[in-house]
Computed example of a mutant assay.
Amino acid sequence: MSDTLAVLGAGSWGTALAIALARRGHAVRLWTLLPADADGMNALRVNAQFLPDIVLPPPLVATADLAAALSGANGVLVAVPSRAFREVLVRVAPLLPVRAIAWATKGFEEDTGKLLHQVAGEVLGEVACVAISGPSFAGEVALGLPTALAVASPDADAASGWVRRLHGDTLRAYLSDDIVGVQVGGAVKNVLAIGAGIADGLGFGANARAALITRGLAEVQRLGLALGARRDTFLGLSGLGDLLLTCTDNQSRNRRVGLALAEGKTPQQAVEALGQVAEGVVTARAVRQLAERLAVNMPLCGEVYRVLYERRDPHAAVQALLAREPSAEL
């Protein structure tokens, strides 16, 4: 059964998901802020800025009219940067056609440190919240390469609806009811990917990368447990899976930021060279604040924060980590 779906956000990830959903036979309205971008996508049948080599399927129509995108939609999927999440939901609130909202945005709200389901509850009231996460690069999803995602919600019906919409020949969707854990894993891995990029850019080798991923996973678990998540969630797609992907492949924007920092670029130069949003830069600040407030030990994320916001030299950050006192692994 096909649905009418609104995908809000026409960056690479929103466009890739819109393409995947349209290939599944759903009528997809892809919302973008700029009318010129919508007109270009509809005329050229590509997103020239973000996915120029992928043809948009016929069931996908771009629009800059938010009301038109939402009107009569059976499902709404938000795929905007975390900084814009609350602002978009405020605009959506009076137009929301169903009492449910899904998102593929990864991060915390920067100023408050809130998870996105908390933001959605504040803005939209009693709605079913669904977080979509897991190891997935937009370009590979758009190409139809095999990908697995986690779809998390305490509302089983809402989550199952998005599993049905997404699940197809090359895209597998797995249910979870741990919306906190899935979001924490998807957010913090971006900070650690910056750290992995720094380590590799400094030439520290495969041993250091493996150690960073493993100890980084321990930090993700600590924060997640303090926020009410389940430990086993972090051994799944949205935890270990997403962490491995973003720390080891140069398709990762956050890893590329780390590589640029290792070359001596400033954080601003690294982000400008990227030309797209790197969520880990914003998330590092929120993670730092949460870790301090909850008294969670997160030394790797802390050093990434210091490189980004306190001008710490990447070599000094590594030395600070190596100089820490020995401790038990578990």
Score class of each variant (00 low, 15 high):
Asp177Val: 06
Gly186Arg: 05
Thr266Trp: 09
Val98Ile: 12
Leu166Asp: 04
Arg165Glu: 06
Ser71Glu: 13
Ile198Val: 15
Gly75His: 05
Val119Cys: 00
Thr248Tyr: 07
Ala48Gly: 11
Thr246His: 00
Glu272Phe: 03
Trp162Leu: 07
Gln49Cys: 12
Gly181Asn: 03
Arg256Ile: 00
Leu308Trp: 00
Glu109Ile: 05
Val119Tyr: 01
Val55Thr: 15
Thr170Trp: 13
Arg253Met: 00
Gly75Glu: 04
Pro146Gln: 14
Pro314Ile: 06
Leu245Lys: 06
His26Asn: 07
Gly134Ser: 10
Gly72Lys: 08
Leu51Cys: 10
Arg311Glu: 11
Ala131Trp: 01
Val7Arg: 04
Val119Lys: 02
Ile194Val: 10
Leu8Val: 05
Ala273Phe: 09
Phe137Arg: 04
Pro94Ser: 15
Gln276Met: 13
Asp3Ser: 15
Leu30Trp: 10
Arg99Tyr: 11
Pro81Asp: 06
Ala16Asn: 11
Ala270Ser: 11
Leu70Phe: 00
Leu192Tyr: 08
Leu115Cys: 10
Lys189Ile: 03
His26Gln: 08
Thr233Gln: 01
Leu30Val: 06
Ile194His: 01
Leu322Tyr: 13
Leu145Val: 04
Leu212Gln: 00
Thr32Phe: 06
Asp157Trp: 13
Ala48Thr: 11
Gln276Ile: 07
Thr170Arg: 15
Val141Tyr: 01
Pro59Ala: 15
Arg306Asp: 10
Ala316Lys: 14
Glu126Thr: 06
Gln289Leu: 14
Glu219Tyr: 12
Gly144His: 13
Met1His: 07
Leu192Ala: 12
Gly280Arg: 02
Leu77Trp: 06
Ile132His: 05
Arg99Lys: 15
Gln118Tyr: 08
Leu171Tyr: 09
Ala131Glu: 00
Leu290Gly: 09
Trp31Gln: 05
Ala62Tyr: 04
Leu330Gln: 14
Val28Asn: 00
Asn254Thr: 01
Ala273Gly: 14
Gly72Ile: 05
Val287Arg: 05
Arg324Ile: 09
Ala120His: 02
Thr32Lys: 09
Ser71Gln: 15
Leu56Glu: 00
Ala173Glu: 08
Ala206Val: 12
Pro299Trp: 07
Asp178Gln: 03
Asp39Tyr: 10
Leu149Gln: 08
Ala20Lys: 09
Glu272Thr: 06
Asn207Met: 14
Glu87Cys: 12
Ala64Gln: 11
Ala79Tyr: 01
Gly107Asn: 01
Glu292Arg: 15
Pro154Asn: 07
Glu329Ile: 12
Leu175Lys: 08
Val78Asn: 00
Thr105Glu: 01
Asp65Asn: 14
Gly25Phe: 02
Thr32Met: 10
Met1Phe: 04
Ala208Met: 08
Leu8Met: 10
Val78Glu: 02
Phe108Leu: 11
Ile194Met: 06
Gln269Cys: 08
Trp13Asp: 04
Leu300Met: 12
Gly181His: 07
Ser160Lys: 12
Ala229Asn: 07
Ala16Leu: 08
Val76His: 03
Leu21Ser: 11
Leu96Cys: 01
Ala67Phe: 11
Ala260Leu: 10
Gln221Val: 13
Gly11Gln: 04
Ala20Asp: 07
Val180Ser: 01
Ala36Val: 12
Thr15Ser: 08
Ala284Asp: 07
Gln268Asp: 15
Asn207Trp: 14
Gly228Cys: 06
Gln118Trp: 09
Asp111Gln: 15
Ala64Gly: 09
Gln251Leu: 14
